[in-house]
Design a binder for these strands. Sequence first.
DNA 1: ATAGAGATTGCCT
DNA 2: GGCAATCTCTATA
Length: 195
Amino acid sequence: MARVRPLPRSFFARPPEVVAPELLGVVLLHGARGGRIIEVEAYGDHDDPASHAHRGRTARNSSMFGPPGHLYVYRSYGIHWCANVVAHQEGRAGAVLVRALAPERDVEAMHEARGRPRRPVDVANGPGKLCQALGIGGEHDGADLCDASSPVRLVVDGTDVAAPPLVGPRIGISRAADEPLRFSVPGDPHRSRPW
DNA sequence: ATAGAGATTGCCT
DNA sequence: GGCAATCTCTATA
């Protein structure tokens, strides 16, 4: 396998809809566990009615307004955790929701974290599922994804993914539901649902 | 103060 | 396909 390297901070200092498709194929790691990003969604600033940042800064979404290249973790439906990559231009807010991973490293531990027998394809094919598989929770909110010493981080290893990405509307939202801000690797069985 | 919706998931029929 | 689980925030009073 090619040598891995972190992404530079400048990679994340661009609009989330620009960063999102480029995160496909990037590896998300927590300790020894890791998987390749297969599906993402972009969420913007006050101008995006579906974004947590739409109504301004709160205790929950504070990380969306912080420095790019960090993690934004929030609780979904009071039960699950969802992981986002903070991405925005100077003075703005925004993030990219990681919706699905293809498990690659320490896959055994990811299965154990999910509990019960699972089909391999179901281990990380959803935003809540991948956080459970990797062991990502609220304590990781704000983690620096560019820092090699951070518990949660992003790396690239030179592996190519199919391009161009598949583009479609975001899932599970009611506002701005027609915007083409969801991106995935065409044909990958680890996506969160059929296209 | 209270009610309702939400970037989800798993188990039920 | 229906529905419960139960945290955070917004709207309304």
